[in-house]
Write a protein that binds this DNA or RNA. Sequence first.
DNA 1: GTCTATAGGAGGATAGAC
DNA 2: GTCTATCCTCCTATAGAC
Lengths: 244, 244
Amino acid sequence: MTRKSVARPGRERILDAAERLFSRRGFYGVSLRDITEAAGVDVALVGYHFGGKRALFKAVFERRAEVLNRERLELLNDIRLAARPGTPSLEAIVHAFTYPLLERSARGGAGWKSYFALIAYVNNSPEFGPEMMSEHFDALVAKFIAVLRESLPDVPPQEIYWGYQFLTGALTLTFAETGRIDKLSGGLVRAADLDSVLERLAPYVAGGFRALAARAAAASAGRGPKRPARAAKAAQMKAIPGEG
Amino acid sequence: MTRKSVARPGRERILDAAERLFSRRGFYGVSLRDITEAAGVDVALVGYHFGGKRALFKAVFERRAEVLNRERLELLNDIRLAARPGTPSLEAIVHAFTYPLLERSARGGAGWKSYFALIAYVNNSPEFGPEMMSEHFDALVAKFIAVLRESLPDVPPQEIYWGYQFLTGALTLTFAETGRIDKLSGGLVRAADLDSVLERLAPYVAGGFRALAARAAAASAGRGPKRPARAAKAAQMKAIPGEG
DNA sequence: GTCTATAGGAGGATAGAC
DNA sequence: GTCTATCCTCCTATAGAC
């Protein structure tokens, strides 16, 4: 018991502060001075530990990614075994995909909370999104999509990808916790109430997938019901003057 | 015909350039010098026309908001009249909510394309989201939610708000067009293919709302099926050392 | 590992000429 | 409405002492 409750070393304090600040104002909205001041260390330490600002940003993003992926993969395997010889329900698949994230955002502490807000920022960023999200999460996402396809064998793969895209959009906006829904609902619903999200996101998304499956089946059965008739008025788009 | 095809005035060129750049790198990722250089005007003009960088940002956001709201409200009224004496389908409501946006992002030109990417940025931003989105869109959103409630009279209002939250998350990630889904699907699905989104988002979301309705009905009928059993393994959360 | 000091540039804003 | 010129702050990065 030579070093019980050692002070958190500078490197970790920088990561913590960077995580918190990047998640609120993005990569460019935070200076190294902001971060190191919040961390209580000197600016020069960023160069020493990480090399530069961008490298620090990536380090923050990577720190918690693998923990999550391991846990999500375990859950996915659990439900596959439990469903044998059949396949897991859509609800179970989406639950396994989202539960480790929502659970940690809800009860993992402030660091995790910030981390998921950062995920929301990155996932919606044209600059960082494709590169950073793909690098750390696409391998796992591909596994989930494979299981979704097993559970929806007659559904064209495009439908699964679109369904996943809508899922990840809904999920990441939830992580952002901007509080807009609080205001909109007059306080009836709170963005921070992730237990409510946990109860609802899986059925919502499963319902969405089933609707896409039905739509695809109808569309392939001869000319089925296509898109809803567009109101004629919508076609008259008053462009801003001078814009093509 | 005294001034046919006048050169676009400086003020508009600044707005155009700012819209494009802000949508790609966010508020802090773009300097006034970046913007005015792209617009081909001097930096000082931003001060003259808008007052400052933040005011410019708000001006960009506001420029196209009311055009959209007017059109969406017209569509909403159209479908309400068409459905009389009943209420519109969930699909029709979601379609009216999203069609004007997706249509302009797809075929409104580069300015509109950037604008919706900017919406994605703002909607997911803890700093700008609640204030800017609420100010310009909440009045309209409240009207849509009212119609959703009419169409789902037995569903608790919280469910409608959650369903809306998931909808707006899916929609805004679509606007971001980061291209991640292109890579993930091996090119089978393209983020820029908004016609495919237009065909799928309304049924997906409608299916989601119906699933939330069913869940709420089951939950209120005595202790119905609660959340899926949490895999025990998920509880063991290996925290990062030192984090509470 | 941590700090001091500083280089060297980029940032937003604005006064004032035209 | 537009540009020139300039102020002063803030930025990232790094060399070097401890």
